[in-house]
C-alpha cells in the first residue's frame, strides 16, 4: 500500500517537475518568434548566466563588458551590479533615449551586457525592447543577463558584488 502510494506520488512529482522544466524552455525561443517586447524574444545564444558575468567582471579589465541596467531607476538606486550604469527602462521611450546616449559613441562590436531583474524573466517588460533597440542600432556583441526570478534572488543573494545609489 505504502509502495503504491509512493509510486503514485513519485509519478505526480515527475510529471509536475517535467512541466516546470519544460515551460521555462520557452524562454529560449528564437528572435522574432515572440513579441519584440518579450524577454522570450531574446535568442538563447545572447543570454549570459549570472555566474558567468560575475566571473567576467572579476577577470582582466580588457575582457569586461559594459554593464547597463535597463530597468527601474529606483531599484538601481537600491542596489545594482558593481560598476554598472543606469540606462533607463527599456519599456519607455525616455528609457531607450537614455540607452542611446550611453552607447552613442561606442564601437558597434563593443561587448555590452544589459540586465533588469525587476520581475521574473517571463514578465520583464524591459530587457526585450532594450535588446531589440541595441540590435537595431547595429550592436553585434550584446548579451542579456538571465535573471530567472529577479535581481535580488539571482544576483544579490548569490553574493555577487553590488553597489548602492545612483
Amino acid at each position: 500500500m505504502f509502495c503504491r502510494s509512493l509510486v503514485r506520488w513519485s509519478a505526480c512529482v515527475a510529471l509536475a517537475a517535467c512541466a516546470a522544466f519544460f515551460v521555462p524552455a520557452k524562454g529560449h525561443a528564437q528572435f522574432g518568434g515572440e513579441s519584440a517586447a518579450s524577454a522570450f524574444s531574446i535568442p538563447q545564444a545572447q543570454l549570459i548566466q549570472p555566474a558567468d558575468l560575475n566571473r567576467l567582471l572579476q577577470g582582466p579589465e580588457k575582457s569586461r563588458p559594459l554593464v547597463l541596467q535597463v530597468g527601474s531607476r529606483m531599484m538601481f538606486a537600491e542596489s545594482h551590479i558593481a560598476g554598472s550604469q543606469f540606462a533607463g527602462p527599456g519599456v519607455q521611450a525616455s528609457g531607450l533615449q537614455l540607452l542611446d546616449s550611453k552607447v552613442a559613441t561606442m564601437a558597434k562590436n563593443r561587448f555590452i551586457v544589459i540586465y533588469c531583474g525587476c520581475c521574473p524573466w517571463n514578465h520583464c517588460p524591459n530587457v526585450g525592447p532594450a535588446f531589440k533597440h541595441l540590435h537595431d542600432m547595429g550592436f553585434t556583441n550584446v548579451k542579456v543577463l538571465y535573471l530567472a526570478n529577479n535581481f535580488g534572488d539571482d544576483w544579490v543573494n548569490k553574493g555577487y558584488r553590488v553597489e548602492h545609489g545612483l
Binding site: G117, C119, H164
Partner: peptide, 16 residues
C-alpha cells in the same frame, strides 16, 4: 510612492 530607502528598510525590494 516608495523609494530606495523604503525598499532597503524592508529588506531589499529587488524584484516585484
Amino acid at each position: 510612492m516608495g523609494d530606495a530607502k523604503l525598499g532597503t528598510l524592508y529588506g531589499g525590494v529587488l524584484g516585484l
